[in-house]
Computed example of a mutant assay.
Amino acid sequence: MRRWAVNHRKRPPRTRTVPVPRVGVRASLAVALLVALLAWATTWAVTDDGGSTSATTGGSQSPPVGGDEPGTSDDGDSASGSDKGSDDQSDGGSGSAGAGEGGADDEKLEKSVRRFRAAQRKLAERVSEQLARRTAPVELRVASFNVLGDSHTGPGGNKPAFYPDASARMNMTIGLLRANDIDVVGFQEFEASQYGMFTSRAGEYSLYPGLSLGDKSVRFNIAWRSSAFQLVEARSLSIPYAGGSRIEMPVVLLESTTTKRRAWFANFHNPADTPSLGNNARWRAEAAGIEIAYLTDLHQADGTPVIVTGDFNEREEIFCRFTAAGVFSAAAGGSSGGGCAPPSNMQVDWVFGSTGVAFDDYAATPTGRASDHNLVHARATLVAGE
């Protein structure tokens, strides 16, 4: 037993001990230091201009480190009633300043909201005005005129001496446009020399394509009164002419200078049957198909009205094809859609308009010695839009 006791004392049973970190004193010191720093920080305030100033009037003092300092209680509050009152007053002053700043911010926000709402109302009024203008009815005089090309009456031309040269006839043409107050006209056989005459003598009109597409395409210019319309977009459509040769013909988007209402205008000349050109019925049919399909798609894309002028070298045939689907009607009258009932007065020169275009006051005015074609014209109204 003694041996066991001795051995037991020497070698006690093994047990698992968990080491306890020896940080008690260090932790206490760290906490005390942190409290001291926080207490010291609360005695300072940041001024409005970014500088620091002491919250006490007695100058900079070392903050208390522990609760044993004279004049402080165990919980860190000041034991002095006067100091306590000072703290309360400081807190109250700070709260009043915060409330004042908050009130000022609220007032600024309210003013900003009022300005924003006023700007919204003005913008809505301007948008409403623009929409009203762009959907208001617009009236214009539109014409189609084959002016008889210069080459027909110049040296070696095929027209009798009844017709004077192109210069004299151009003066007559301009006079006809002005007398009938034409706003937009589609020309055919408008050769380069005649283009130069017109632009130098009728400065109130703008034209497309001018000479930009070459000497062939100049023959199909569209002219519009610059005070009434401005060009928005210009295109050309390749059309088979005599013998199937392709020529670019103009399509333009014009905008009213007063209402900003827009419409597409296209001008074509389909080939005739002549001894020199032969029979071109095939090419006229192909040209008509291209023209009608393109312009129908153009109109139906967004509902913009389309007005078409041209010398189609056909009467009933082209009328029935253009109006068959009910998309286009003729300024000369007649049916639109369903069975074909052409107007009684038909020229080879036509003015057609898509839905959204109404015609009245149609006329085929004789032009005397100016041309071997009448001036076909009408009042077109772009009806009120949605």
Rank of each mutant, 00 (worst) to 15 (best):
E317L: 11
E317S: 13
E317P: 05
E317I: 14
E317D: 13
I318L: 14
F319A: 00
F319C: 04
F319I: 07
C320D: 11
C320N: 06
C320F: 07
R321A: 15
R321W: 12
R321G: 12
R321Q: 15
R321V: 12
R321Y: 12
F322Y: 15
F322G: 01
F322M: 14
T323D: 14
T323H: 14
T323W: 15
T323I: 15
A324M: 10
A324W: 10
A325W: 04
G326Y: 15
G326H: 13
V327F: 09
V327H: 01
V327R: 03
V327M: 02
V327L: 08
F328R: 02
F328C: 08
S329E: 10
A330H: 01
A330S: 12
A331F: 02
A331H: 06
A331E: 03
A331K: 02
A332Q: 09
A332V: 11
G334P: 08
G334S: 02
S335N: 01
S335W: 07
S335G: 00
S335C: 01
S335M: 02
G337W: 11
G337Y: 11
G337I: 09
G338I: 01
G338C: 05
G338M: 08
G339Q: 08
C340D: 04
A341M: 06
A341N: 09
A341V: 15
A341K: 04
A341D: 07
A341C: 03
P342C: 10
P343H: 05
S344Y: 08
S344E: 13
S344I: 09
N345K: 06
N345V: 12
N345I: 11
M346D: 07
Q347R: 09
V348Y: 06
V348P: 08
V348C: 03
V348K: 04
V348I: 14
D349K: 00
D349G: 00
D349M: 02
W350Y: 07
W350H: 12
V351M: 03
V351C: 06
F352M: 01
G353W: 01
G353Y: 05
G353L: 05
G353K: 00
G353D: 02
G353Q: 00
S354E: 05
S354V: 08
S354T: 03
S354F: 08
S354N: 05
T355Y: 00
T355H: 01
T355G: 00
G356T: 01
G356K: 00
V357A: 03
A358R: 12
F359M: 09
F359C: 10
F359P: 12
F359A: 06
D360E: 15
D360V: 13
D361S: 15
D361E: 15
Y362P: 07
A364I: 10
